[in-house]
Design a binder for these strands. Sequence first.
DNA 1: CTGAAAGCGCTAACAG
DNA 2: CTGTTAGCGCTTTCAG
Lengths: 368, 368
Amino acid sequence: MIKGRISIKDVSALAGVSTATVSNVFSGRKPVNEALATRVREAAATLGYQPDRAAAQLRSGRTNVVAVLVPDLTDTFFATIVTRLEALANTQGYDVIVASSGDQRSVEASRLEALLAWRPAGVIAMPCSNIVPEALVAEAGRMPVVLVDRVMVPSALADTVTIDNRDAGAIAARHLVEHGHRDIVLAASHMDIAPVEQRMQAAADHILQETGRRATILELGSSVEEGSAVVARWLERHAVPDAVIASTNVTTLAVLSAFARFRIAIPERTSIVAFDDSAWMSARNTGLTAIRQPAEAMAEAAWERLCIRMQGRGAMPPTSIVLQAGLVVRSSVGKRAPERAGASPPGETSAETRHPPDPPPPGVERVH
Amino acid sequence: MIKGRISIKDVSALAGVSTATVSNVFSGRKPVNEALATRVREAAATLGYQPDRAAAQLRSGRTNVVAVLVPDLTDTFFATIVTRLEALANTQGYDVIVASSGDQRSVEASRLEALLAWRPAGVIAMPCSNIVPEALVAEAGRMPVVLVDRVMVPSALADTVTIDNRDAGAIAARHLVEHGHRDIVLAASHMDIAPVEQRMQAAADHILQETGRRATILELGSSVEEGSAVVARWLERHAVPDAVIASTNVTTLAVLSAFARFRIAIPERTSIVAFDDSAWMSARNTGLTAIRQPAEAMAEAAWERLCIRMQGRGAMPPTSIVLQAGLVVRSSVGKRAPERAGASPPGETSAETRHPPDPPPPGVERVH
DNA sequence: CTGAAAGCGCTAACAG
DNA sequence: CTGTTAGCGCTTTCAG
């Protein structure tokens, strides 16, 4: 009882067996006589023995750790993926260590460094930009790596799991065009993020082809406040558009809060297609029509690929798994009167549609 | 180059020093001549050396890992705390490992087991119920432990960081009562979760004292779907209340989506005070008045306490840090006409206020 | 301030 | 099937 740590030796002594046997009982790597095994387990229980991972890892060279790198845990999309990955990993005896980069490349690099110092059995990474961090590129040959969401596809580098972003963008655009909308704003976060670029580009292409109009692309950055400010500034100098397609969860929030500030009614005045369907989007009277990404399915696909890599010895060529996103129709897209649609030149409605915004800051008052 | 792993020996050989010196250069535990140090660092760089944590931990007995246990990562409140903790830990050379329990006690127990197997330097836990898991209780003496949010305060067990939940509940109730609301529903998740119980109890007390009315307490469970169904069922058999106080992020969503299904206008027909202010609450025309928990400050306080425990040798008695929550006033609380307020007996308005719900499922249609 | 050597707790070989 | 033994890569004495 005075001893700091109970080791495998203590257990082996109490059970009257060798340390190797104790090891085998716990790791299950070699079969052990059932009678001995229970004796060992009892001894371990009475001593309160817990294996030391550090020692096991050092000796065996194996790890049951997989590293997960995300841009932002407070984004429900990523949180959902991480949660699902954690659950899957646990069922197979793996532990997950997570690092988040706050969407900053420099932080990402250092977090990744820390992650790799664990010598994980594999890495599942959602990089914060298209540029896959160098450290990962270097490791990708030596270690199973699966890239999820934020990547160019196909990648020669590693397995990937993404959605069909072009298709998703086109679906959103088609839905809007079919409802008679012409003057459409595309709210991107950063156009240098591959999935965002693809969604927005496909939407723009579809809109151009169907209506002959060029969509306006706005870059909102990666925070709600920042994005909301950009939209607000834009609204001050432009007519309220027919509709908006948001490229992500965060841009959806940014657009919505700017619109709220300007008291732009949805869907009466402007329609919106959101991205990354989440609980709050369906919780109000005007539910948001949204592109839903199959976050859990993405996590499952990524885990499956990683398992294959972790088991399989052979160096297979990288695989790209592409899942489909779907449109969830709620109430944020309205019909636009056909006589108006396309009839009025871009600027014409501006005078009548311009609204004074609310008092600049969103009128928040705190009461203790 | 053919070697699998570069070890400290390779570096020491190349730099022409002993392994101990290399170790000291990297760990910084003993001063090293600057000339030698740079030579070592260069050697390490050219070899691509990375220290092996497992070996370091095994030998030294120390770890730079802190374990964090949360009920649900997809809840932004917890995600925010985890993110902040991770950032703080990193600045001080610690790594964080996270486990989430999905709000299930059995999962929590097994996740905690896994967490403790890392022999972390400390644990920050947000248990999923009042009952602090046994394994944690056992460890609390041996290891720094900080309990956050979901705990009874004061606790003899360990340091705690919470908000003043009674105060938060009372603030919400007062706000509603001051606006003339009398018939108030309290949407709890589970009343056996201490902070929820305290918020709701304090609100109920305030309401009873100020209006003489007993608030209705509804237990909605821990998922949006489940909670929304409970509210819907309740609404079918009761008059629409004057107002609702939600006890958490999730219950807010549950109440809101049930209200949306019944087309109950906020704040015209019913007022609502939300909990756990998050981005989506301010993104619509009717922003949600909410109790804001200082999630980041809670993370900071918890980290600070943990640091003190991890450094300090002496066994200080447990400390309880209690932070204040504040009310953020937006637009989801309306004024109730004074002549009506309190004048009508509880059941009277039921006939006229009852509404037929929308088609049972929330009318969601998918388009490929 | 630096080097030599011992050993942390465990598992991999191999011998019985 | 079980025991013996030799290290995994690092940090820590303890001499120099």
